[in-house]
C-alpha cells in the first residue's frame, strides 16, 4: 500500500517512518531540510514554500494524493496537521482519524485504530474506511535502515487565504522530557512561581528533569511549554515520575501513564492522583519535599 507521509520536521517524520515502514511503501514530504534519507522512505521530498499553512498545504497534499494514487495519508499530530486533516477529509471525501497511537490494517481496506477518548480516561478502538491518520508524537524512537531514500527538493508556491503578519520567537530551551529517566512535576499546588525552586532541588538531587501540569506551563508560564506533561503536552515514560501539587485530572494522567513508578504528593487525600500512583504521601509539598531531599542526600 502506498502512503504519503507529511511532516513539519525531520525528527517527527523519522519517528513515523520507523513505526510504519513495514506496513506501507512510504514517500515522505517534509517541511524542512533535515536529512531523513536513512529511515526507510522510498522518496523524500523536502518542500520549500513561503508561508506553509493548512489551506495551501491541503491543496498541495490532495493534488499529490490523487496524482500518484496514494492509498493513505500519514501525519504526526500537531495543530497544523489537525487543521490539514480536517480540510483533507472534506476535499478527499474520506474519514480522518486523529491522534492515534495504534494502527492495524484489516480486510477489505478497513483499518483498526486506537486513540484516547473521554479526555484520556478511556481508549477507543475503531474500525473504519478512513484514509487519513494523524499519530501522537513520541510513539517510537527513530531507527535507521540500511537502504537510502531518493531525496528531492520541491518548491511550491500556493496561495493561502491567510497571511502572516509577524512571528514572535519564544525563549528556547532544549529539554527532552520524553527521554528523561526521572521527572519531578509541579502542579498548581505549588501556589507561586518561587515554589519551583523546591521542585528543582528535588530534581537536582535525583539528576532528573522538571515537568509541570498545564496550568503551570500554559496559564501561568512558570515553566516553558515543552515541559507540560499530558494529553496536549508531552507523553513521558520515566522510571520515576513524581507529581507534586497535581490533582491528577485525566488529561494529565494521559501523559504520564507510561511511567514505571509514580509517586504523588498532595495535601488533599481525596485527590484523584492517589488512584493513579504507586506511592503517595498526603501532605503539604513544602513540608514533604525538603524532608525527602534530606533523606535522599544521606
Amino acid at each position: 500500500m502506498k502512503a504519503l507521509l507529511f511532516s513539519e520536521s525531520g525528527d517527527l517524520a523519522s519517528q513515523l517512518l520507523t513505526l510504519l515502514r513495514d506496513k506501507f511503501e512510504i514517500n515522505a514530504y517534509i517541511l524542512s531540510k533535515d536529512d531523513i534519507s536513512e529511515y526507510g522512505a522510498s522518496n523524500v521530498f523536502q518542500i520549500e514554500t513561503s508561508f506553509p499553512y493548512a489551506d495551501n498545504l491541503s491543496s498541495f497534499i490532495s493534488e499529490e494524493f490523487k496524482k500518484w494514487n496514494y492509498h493513505v495519508i500519514l501525519m504526526v499530530s500537531s495543530p497544523l496537521t489537525r487543521d490539514i486533516a480536517g480540510m483533507l477529509s472534506e476535499i478527499l471525501k474520506t474519514e480522518a482519524i486523529t491522534e492515534i497511537m495504534k494502527l492495524e490494517t484489516g480486510e477489505n481496506n478497513k483499518f483498526y485504530t486506537e486513540r484516547f477518548f473521554f479526555g484520556g480516561k478511556t481508549i477507543i478502538r475503531e474500525e473504519s474506511d478512513a484514509r487519513i491518520f494523524t499519530f501522537l508524537a513520541g510513539l517510537t524512537d527513530p531507527q535507521k535502515v540500511n537502504t537510502k531514500s531518493n531525496v528531492q527538493k520541491i518548491r511550491i508556491d500556493l496561495k493561502s487565504r491567510v497571511s502572516l503578519v509577524n512571528e514572535i520567537e519564544k525563549p528556547k530551551s532544549s529539554v527532552n522530557l520524553e527521554k528523561a529517566d526521572i521527572i519531578v512535576s509541579a502542579g498548581r499546588g505549588i501556589g507561586k512561581k518561587e515554589g519551583l525552586s523546591v521542585i528543582q532541588q528535588l530534581a537536582d538531587v535525583l539528576h532528573g528533569e522538571v515537568g509541570g501540569s498545564r496550568p503551570v506551563c500554559l496559564d501561568y508560564h512558570w515553566l516553558s511549554e515543552e515541559r507540560q506533561v499530558g494529553l496536549s503536552g508531552k507523553r513521558v515514560k520515566p522510571k520515576i515520575y513524581i507529581a507534586a501539587g497535581i490533582s491528577g485530572q485525566v488529561q494529565h494522567i494521559a501523559g504520564m501513564r507510561g511511567s514505571k513508578t509514580v509517586i504523588a504528593i498532595n495535601k488533599d487525600k481525596n485527590a484523584p492522583i492517589f488512584n493513579e500512583c504507586d506511592y503517595g504521601i498526603v501532605g503539604d509539598l513544602y513540608v514533604v519535599i525538603p524532608k525527602l531531599i534530606e533523606k535522599l542526600k544521606k
Binding site: A54, D55, S58, R82, D83, I84, A85, G86, M87, L88, S89, E90, I91, A96, T98, E99, R115, F116, F117, F118, G119, G120, L231, Q251
Partner: peptide
C-alpha cells in the same frame, strides 16, 4: 475536550 478529534475547524473551512 472529550473526543479530542480537532477535525471540525478544518472541515468547516473546506
Amino acid at each position: 475536550a472529550d473526543s479530542y478529534t480537532g477535525l471540525l475547524p478544518g472541515k468547516l473551512s473546506s
